[in-house]
Design a protein around this nucleic acid. Structure first.
Length: 515
RNA sequence: GGGCGCGUAGCUCAAUUGGCAGAGCAACUGACUCUUAAUCAGUAGGUUGUAGGUUCGAUUCCUACCGCGCUCACCA
């Protein structure tokens, strides 16, 4: 019999004894007067003398996180919503039977207490308990009180235990505030929040491999969406000039500290706006969110500090020039990007250094420009930076720049060396869209299974006329990482994707007798 | 998928060159009516991730597998 099983059985016995004392094992409610955070904020200013004079009566509930027993009196901490309040139980004050009950409690149990507020000799606000109500038993031991759970696998698998750690909890509270703040920002500007299909017959709107699922009655395969993009633009065609959606996308790709197979994205579309309008809107939105969440335009991330007050803006080509590594010789000029031969030369020069840049002569030169950018510039983009004017070759849904047809009106936001957002003036010429899809089909033929598929209904929608529109996607998980200082995406997703846990055949904690 | 690293009591971590597997917290028993990582005395708790191999002897060395982390590649 394992130790864990021992503790489980012991605590079940205690639960039986608690019932024998007349308290139900699993009562169905507790009427409290305050939540613990309310008490802490309402009485911080009250002195011991004031409390002594008024003896404010309170009833509170929470989880027991520490017990310090001294014979016939005891202090303990109750935790609720990530905050702790001390309680003081004295045998004289609660009586024989309640004292017996108290001694049957374990760390991790939920209880409710009634009593009055006072300050201890050391000045800590505490509840002088007059009555204990048993609420729920913790049958399994909590992690070590000082270090908590540090095994990240256990943390992610047993988030219900991990969340008792106040700092872990705080990350997810902040995540909720981020989403709240984004909604407030967009709602105030007349955006309409919508929900579009998660299960799509054609997975479009991004370059990624989808998950496949099956509908039994219709007997068709469906794809979990990789982006809501094409549906949201159909809505703009239909006259929802300003729409947004915050929801999950699914991409059947590797997992890493920056990637989870399901992740949350904000996408929004604004009719009659171009990508420059979106740049301004984005800066304003991210600054509001940072203030709402942290009360500051600075946030700590890893070794450094992110300063959201200042967004650098560079074109992709300018960024390549700016961050061109000395070991690869003279930095290119803007002119160099106009010639396919010169672009190939740039790649060749980089390939002689530590920078690995793929090159495929069958691919359009624009792809090479993007690859060069990723190799030399991306890692430098630690402070918030807007990179604009992307090559047409990697942007099948963006509008061409009028002055430079090989480039499109697209930008991405980079923070802490990561992509945070992606935006563009939306391509609304249905015939050009058809040509782009056909070109993507060509790449599919050549083996790129992330290339975009043909979507006839989307082209039909554009044929009814979409106003000039700017659209943008922002990764909520990544934004949460940046604003909470979490260097792994798994720390901002409650239940990140892990391999299924393998269970041993040993007896389950329910305690079935062994065969 | 490639490379590097990790896996020891419920939790956090030790263990000399390959030589009796240990501590703190949690648990249990006892003492203690203002403690706060409470304190003090005692008790119990282990198939060292799994399976092989080398060896008189393996937590330690080797191989494979499982799980996790970091990193590279793809992407947001």
């Amino acid at each position: 019999m394992s130790l864990e099983q021992n503790i489980y059985d012991l605590r079940k016995q205690k639960l039986g004894q608690i019932e024998a004392l007349g308290q139900p094992a699993y009562p169905n409610q507790f009427r409290f007067t305050h939540q613990i955070p309310e008490i802490l904020s309402a009485y911080t200013a009250s002195t011991g003398e004031e409390l002594e004079a008024n003896k404010p009566q309170v009833a509170i509930a929470g989880r027991l996180m520490a017990i310090r027993l001294m014979g016939k009196a005891s202090f303990a901490h109750l935790q609720q919503q990530g905050e702790k309040l001390q309680i003081y139980i004295k045998k004289d004050a609660v009586g024989e039977k309640q004292w017996e009950l108290y001694k049957l409690l374990d760390i991790g149990d939920h209880i409710g207490v009634k009593g009055y507020l006072f300050r201890t000799r050391t000045g800590e606000l505490s509840v002088h308990v007059e009555e204990i109500t048993f609420l729920s038993k913790d049958l399994l031991p909590l992690p070590e009180k000082f270090h908590g759970l540090t095994d990240v696998e256990l943390r992610y698998r047993m988030r219900y235990v991990d969340l008792l750690d106040v700092e872990v909890r705080q990350v997810f509270v902040k995540r909720a505030k981020i989403v709240q703040s984004i909604r407030r920002f967009l709602d105030a500007r007349s955006f309409v929040e919508v929900e579009t299909p998660m299960m799509q017959p054609i997975a479009g709107g991004a370059a990624a491999r989808p998950f496949v699922t099956h509908h039994n009655t219709l007997d068709i395969d469906l794809f979990l969406r990789i982006a809501p993009e094409l549906y949201l633009k159909r809505l703009v065609v239909g006259g929802l000039d300003r729409v947004y959606e915050i929801s999950r996308n699914f991409r059947n790709e590797g997992v890493s500290t920056r990637h989870n197979p399901e992740f949350t994205m904000l996408e929004f579309y604004q009719a009659y706006a171009n990508y420059h309008d979106l740049m301004d809107l984005t800066v304003e939105m991210l600054q509001q969110v940072a203030m709402d969440v942290n009360g500051s335009l600075k946030s700590q991330f890893g070794e450094g500090e992110i300063d959201w007050s200042n967004f650098q803006r560079l074109s992709m080509r300018e960024a390549i020039i700016k961050f061109w590594p000395a070991e690869a010789g003279e930095a290119p000029t803007m002119e160099a990007f106009k010639s396919d031969a010169e672009i190939e030369q740039l790649v060749r020069r980089l390939q002689k250094t530590k920078f690995s840049v793929p090159y495929d002569p069958r691919e359009p030169a624009g792809r090479a420009i993007a690859d060069i950018f990723e190799a030399v510039a991306e890692a430098h983009l630690w402070q918030p930076t807007i990179i604009y004017d992307f090559p047409l070759a990697i942007s099948p849904l963006s509008k061409n720049k009028a002055s430079e047809p090989d480039f499109v009106e697209r930008f991405e936001i980079y923070v802490a060396g990561m992509e945070l957002g992606n935006a563009f003036s939306e391509l609304n010429d249905p015939e050009e869209q058809r040509r782009r899809f056909e070109q993507q089909l060509g790449e599919r033929e050549r083996g790129d299974d992330e290339a975009h598929q043909m979507d006839e209904d989307y082209i039909r929608a554009l044929s009814y006329g979409m106003p000039p529109t700017g659209g943008e996607g922002i990764g909520i998980d990544r934004l949460t990482m940046m604003l909470t200082g979490s260097t792994s995406i798994r720390d901002v997703i409650l239940f990140p994707q892990l391999r299924p846990e393998k269970r041993d055949e040993e007896a389950a904690p329910e305690g079935e007798s062994a065969k």
